[in-house]
């Protein structure tokens, strides 16, 4: 009886694992299948490095170049990550090393709550507050890459903060008393022991965060202006995810436009994959 239960259990687990892998394989297959026809019409280099995106021939020729979208995606993710890492590390250090047990108990749920807010709401807040500020600062419509970066950073924060502060707390509890027992000041010990000892974990969190940042659509779309321009910090731009979300609904099925949007999605996927690989490789290089 026991053995049977075990067998059934491991069978179910195995089936679920296979299902997960199959779904992933199917998604990749589907995207690639829908993306490939693009390249019968458009040259790969034109697609990747072209700056003109004119999917429907209103005036002049159609053209499918997603270079600006790629750059915008990378740029906004980078801006968001830089902001989020700085603020997040600060918050994590505070939560793990400064806040008392009680304060942590009160603040942690807030951080988690931040993670539960839907991205549409973030976008809304971005529109209502951030964009207004940027207008006051003299940016014509207020929509810009920086606004999207800031918004995205806020969305990345909860995850970064909670995962970093957890590691830091462990490290701090292990080493800080020994340092303090030698009369070493707390901040010196935090800077020289706690931060270096947690950086592996910080890097790991950053990898996961970058994936989230590059794929985030709604909030970014709402505040970045969505104009096909090369990204500048205070200028409008449009990310790959935004293009897909904005145009998929109106693209005629099986048209080049439709396939090109899939191809853009594929590029986004490959981009993420490559970034993950590079960071993983770097991590192993540096650690050993």
């Amino acid at each position: 009886m026991r053995r049977w239960k075990n067998r059934i259990f491991s069978g179910v687990i195995l089936a679920m694992t296979i299902l997960t892998v199959l779904i992933l394989a199917f998604v990749i297959y589907f995207i690639v299948k829908e993306a490939l026809p693009t390249f019968q019409e458009v040259k790969l280099t034109d697609f990747l490095f072209g700056q003109r995106w004119m999917p429907i021939a209103y005036t002049g020729e159609v053209s499918f170049g997603i270079f600006n979208f790629i750059m915008a995606t990378l740029y906004v993710s980078f801006v968001a990550l830089v902001i989020a890492v700085f603020v997040g590390l600060g918050a994590a250090v505070f939560l793990s090393c400064v806040a008392s047990e009680r304060m942590r108990g009160i603040l942690y749920p807030f951080v988690d709550l931040l993670a539960g807010i839907p991205s549409v709401i973030y976008g809304f807040i971005g529109l209502a507050i951030l964009v207004k500020y940027f207008i006051r600062l003299g940016i014509p419509t207020g929509s810009c890459v920086l606004a999207a970066g800031i918004l995205l950073a806020v969305m990345l924060l909860p995850f970064l903060v909670s995962s970093c502060s957890e590691t830091m707390l462990k490290v701090k509890e292990a080493y800080l008393p020994a340092a303090e027992a030698m009369g070493i000041s707390k901040w010196y010990a935090i800077a020289t022991i706690v931060l270096p000892a947690s950086w592996k974990n910080i890097l790991m969190s950053m990898i996961l965060a970058i994936g989230r940042a590059m794929g985030e659509t709604m909030a970014v779309m709402m505040v970045m202006g969505n104009a096909n321009l090369f990204p500048r910090l205070l200028g409008k731009s449009e990310s790959i995810a935004s293009v897909i979300a904005l145009e998929m609904g109106t693209a005629v099925v099986d048209s080049t436009h439709y396939h090109a949007l899939y191809a853009a999605g594929m590029v986004l996927m490959i981009l993420l994959f490559v970034i993950n690989l590079v960071i993983m490789f770097l991590r192993e290089k540096i650690i050993d």
Binding site: A179, A181, M182, G183, I184, S185
Partner: peptide
């Protein structure tokens, strides 16, 4: 406090060497 701790050292029950090399552990303070 710093002065006091320099004069009165404390070693804990569970050894907690810092996550560095032996040499850096010894030169840290």
């Amino acid at each position: 406090p710093e002065q006091l701790r320099r004069r009165v050292g404390l070693v804990f029950q569970t050894p907690a060497p810092f996550p560095f090399s032996i040499y850096r552990n010894m030169t840290y303070a």
